[in-house]
C-alpha cells in the first residue's frame, strides 16, 4: 500500500517507502528520473542538486519522506517540451558543457540563484555555485552562461 505522495515536476507519485530512502534514491531508482546525478553521496559535489519549493537542496542528504507533498523540481522538469529553459539555452550557447555529468545540478543551482537574485555579480555567481564541482570545464564558461541566462530571462516577454 502506498504510504507517501511525492510531487516531482508537478506530478504526484504514490510510493510505499520504509522511511530510510533518500530523495536521490527515490528519484533515480523508484521514479527512474536519472537526470539527477550523484558523484559522492555525501553532500560534497552538488551533482544531486534539485529544487525544493524553488530552493536548491542536495537530494543525497534529503530524506524522501521529509519532503512528501512539497514541490520538487528536477532537471527533467525544466524544459517545456522541446523549448529549453533560458538557463539551459545559455549553457549551450556559451559552451559551458563538457561531459555534462555535473550539468543538472549546476543548472538547478543557477536557477535557484537567478530566482532569488536576477542580476548576480560574478562574485555572487561564484559563491552560489561553490558547492557544485565541475571537473572538466574550469568554471569560467559556466559563470558566463549564468550571466547570459540572467540577461535572457530579463528580456523574456512576460508570461500570460
Amino acid at each position: 500500500m502506498p504510504n507517501i505522495t511525492i510531487s516531482v515536476n508537478n506530478q504526484n507519485y504514490e510510493l510505499n517507502l520504509n522511511g530510510e530512502e533518500t530523495l536521490l534514491e527515490v528519484l533515480r531508482e523508484h521514479l527512474h528520473l536519472t537526470g539527477t546525478k550523484s558523484a559522492c553521496h555525501e553532500a560534497e559535489c552538488g551533482a544531486c542538486t534539485v529544487l525544493l519549493n524553488g530552493k536548491s537542496v542536495l537530494a543525497c542528504i534529503t530524506l524522501a519522506c521529509d519532503v512528501a507533498g512539497q514541490d520538487i523540481t528536477t532537471i527533467e522538469g525544466l524544459a517545456k517540451g522541446e523549448d529549453l529553459h533560458p538557463i539551459q539555452d545559455a549553457f549551450l550557447e556559451k559552451g559551458a558543457v563538457q561531459c555534462g555529468f555535473c550539468m543538472p545540478g549546476m543548472i538547478l543551482a543557477s536557477k535557484s540563484l537567478l530566482d532569488r537574485n536576477p542580476e548576480p555579480s560574478r562574485e555572487e555567481i561564484k559563491t552560489a555555485l561553490n558547492g557544485n564541482i565541475c571537473r572538466c570545464a574550469g568554471y569560467t564558461k559556466i559563470f558566463e552562461a549564468v550571466e547570459h541566462a540572467a540577461k535572457k530571462i530579463k528580456n523574456q516577454p512576460p508570461q500570460q
Partner: peptide
C-alpha cells in the same frame, strides 16, 4: 553548440551510471 548538448542540459542523456 555541442551536437549532444541538449541531452546533457536536460538530463536525458544516459550515462552507464544511469
Amino acid at each position: 553548440p555541442r551536437i549532444d548538448g541538449k541531452g546533457l542540459v536536460t538530463g536525458q542523456t544516459k550515462f552507464t551510471y544511469d
